[in-house]
Each structure stands twice: as structure tokens, then as C-alpha cells.
């Protein structure tokens, strides 16, 4: 089952996920700037920022424990793994069977737990606040995410992402109401999990309602760079999951070299669209009060459950 093409695809995809992540974030920011009638910092700004941060000397608190220093690396490793096994380019990834969608949710949970622990490590008030809120959003988002994925899993009778992609890409054209529900729910979870408006604001700093930024306040230098980079990969990975579940056309199947250029172009097009859509969404919505977040996410959960129920009903 492992062949040269598969390994090549795997390597291309993993490297691509890591390299393309900041570009994708740059694109979202650029779109947002345009929509807000600003000129915007340019697509490559996230790379410049990463480079600058890597060059800087990190400053950490006196009583920071080893866990604090290890967390950025763990985070980066988790996100790399996630970016590597989501079939964004091809389904013939030798590593992809190592983790199905449930395990993927587990990877994100692992990263979240480590980041929250690191936030608590310094013992500052902002850190604890951020960790607490992050875990709150997390525990609400995780069941919603799983229900979304379950709906897709029921349609294709598998939790392996590659199988789901292959099934969904090959079905005859049919409108699945259940999948539409799941897509909306997934979008809501994506917004919450990636610290986007309306749950959190990625552009904020020093705001009492911040979540993600409050957790990484104490980080600087290379640690901060790794965390930012990991967040970018995470956004990319989530988008790639969304693409795989709801718009899987164009992803290369089998060990077929010729499909690669098509897959690349398709992926690029989809990312451009997704990024623009995300920016538009963020522009038109306002940030919620913190305690509206449970309502937001329970709505996402509800949508996912409804999608699943409708799927069962349609079959019955």
C-alpha cells in the first residue's frame, strides 16, 4: 500500500501545509483589509513577522517551568501532523490511516491542552483567564465538531478522511441536506476553534475579552513564532478538512502523478475562495459577548445533530 508516489504526495503535502499556512493567513488578512477599505499589509506579511520573531531573543518569566518552553514545539508538532494527514492534495497518503477524523480532533485537543497549561504556568491573571476561556470554547466546540464529522462519516460509512473524500467526490450529484447542515455547523466550529470573530478576535491585543492572545501573552521570540506558525497551520488544516468534507472535487486519488497539478490548482482556488469568504464573514459580524459563545456553539452542535437526524430520516 505504500509506494513511491504515495510517499512523494505525503512529503509534498506535509511541506506544503506548513509553508502555505502563513500565506493563507496573509490572504485572509489582506481580504479583510480590502473589505474594510484599507490597503492591507500584503500577502507575505506573516512570513516577515515569523522571520523577525525567530531572530529576536525570547524573554521568559523567571519561574517558567520546562513545560512552558516545550509547549511551542509540541504545538507545532501537533499541527504539522494534522496538516500532514488531512487529504488536501491527494488521498493516497501513507500516513493518513494513522489517524482518522476522531483522532484528528484528538490532536487539536492535545494542542489546546498544552497551550492552556502553558498559559497557566506563569501564574499571571491574564494567563489563567485565557486558559479558562479557551477550555470553555474547546469543550463546547469538540462535541459539535465530532457530530459534524459523524454526519459525514455516516454518509460514507467511514471515519477515515481519505475514504470520506473518495466517497463524497464520487457520488452522483445529489443534494444532501444533512451535509449542508453539517457544513454550517463546521463553519461555526472553525470560527470558534481558530479564535476568529465572532468568538474571539485575532487582531486584538490587550482587550479584556481576548482568549487566544491572553494565553500567549508571555511568549516572545522563537516561541511566539512557533505558536503563531502553528495557529496558521491550524487554520489551514481546518479549512482543508472543510474542503475535504464539503467540496472534495479535484483532490488527486490513487498514485497518479498527473493529477497533482490539477489538485494543486484546485486547492489554490478553493483556498482563495475560502479565505475571502472567511474575511467577509469576519467583516460583517461583530464579536459576541463571551457568554454568548456557549449559545453560538450549542447552535453549531444542534445543527450537526439535525443534519444527522435528517440523514437517518432520508434513508428510512
Amino acid at each position: 500500500m505504500i509506494d513511491a508516489a504515495g510517499i512523494a504526495f505525503q512529503i509534498v503535502q506535509s511541506v506544503l501545509a506548513v509553508l502555505i499556512g502563513p500565506l493563507y493567513v496573509g490572504w485572509v488578512n489582506q481580504c479583510r483589509a480590502w473589505l474594510q477599505n484599507r490597503s492591507g499589509p500584503g500577502l507575505l506579511q506573516p512570513y516577515y513577522m515569523l522571520a523577525r520573531l525567530f531572530h529576536k531573543e525570547p524573554v521568559i518569566a523567571e519561574h517558567a517551568s520546562p513545560l512552558f518552553r516545550a509547549t511551542p514545539y509540541v504545538l507545532f508538532g501537533c499541527m504539522w501532523l494534522a496538516g500532514g494527514i488531512v487529504p488536501a492534495l491527494a488521498t493516497d497518503l501513507p500516513f493518513a490511516p494513522a489517524a482518522d477524523i476522531i483522532a484528528l480532533v484528538g490532536v487539536f485537543a492535545l494542542a489546546r491542552v498544552f497551550l492552556s497549561l502553558a498559559a497557566l504556568d506563569i501564574g499571571t491573571s491574564f494567563g489563567g483567564l485565557g486558559a479558562r476561556r479557551e477550555m470553555m470554547v474547546g469543550f463546547l466546540a469538540e462535541p459539535a465538531m465530532l457530530m459534524t464529522l459523524f454526519t459525514a462519516a455516516f454518509i460514507s460509512n467511514s471515519t477515515a478522511l481519505t475514504t470520506i473524500v473518495e466517497t463524497l467526490a464520487h457520488r452522483e450529484f445529489a443534494i444532501y441536506p444533512s451535509l449542508a447542515f453539517a457544513a454550517v455547523a463546521f463553519l461555526m466550529v472553525l470560527l470558534a476553534e481558530n479564535a476568529r470573530v465572532p468568538v474571539d478576535n485575532p487582531a486584538t491585543h490587550l482587550e479584556l475579552t481576548m482568549i487566544h492572545e491572553a494565553m500567549i501573552l508571555e511568549y516572545s521570540g522563537r516561541h511566539l513564532a512557533l505558536i503563531e506558525w502553528a495557529s496558521a497551520i491550524k487554520l489551514f488544516a481546518y479549512t482543508a478538512i472543510g474542503i475535504a468534507l464539503f467540496a472534495p472535487w479535484g483532490i488527486a486519488e490513487g498514485s497518479n502523478w498527473s493529477a497533482l497539478p490539477v489538485a494543486l490548482v484546485a486547492l489554490a482556488a478553493k483556498l482563495v475562495l475560502a479565505g475571502a469568504g472567511l474575511a467577509a464573514l469576519e467583516t460583517v459580524s461583530a464579536k459576541f459577548r463571551l457568554f454568548r459563545a456557549p449559545e453560538f456553539l450549542s447552535t453549531a452542535f444542534l445543527l450537526a445533530v439535525l443534519g444527522m437526524l435528517i440523514h437517518f430520516l432520508g434513508r428510512g
Partner: peptide, 16 residues
Amino acid sequence: QQLVNLLAAALLLIAF
């Protein structure tokens, strides 16, 4: 029929 199903789903969604 698919369209009707989709609209039915939308109806339920709006009810929620």
C-alpha cells in the same frame, strides 16, 4: 425530490 428534501431541511432549520 432532493430539492424538496433540502427545502424541508431548511424549514426545520428555520424553526430551530
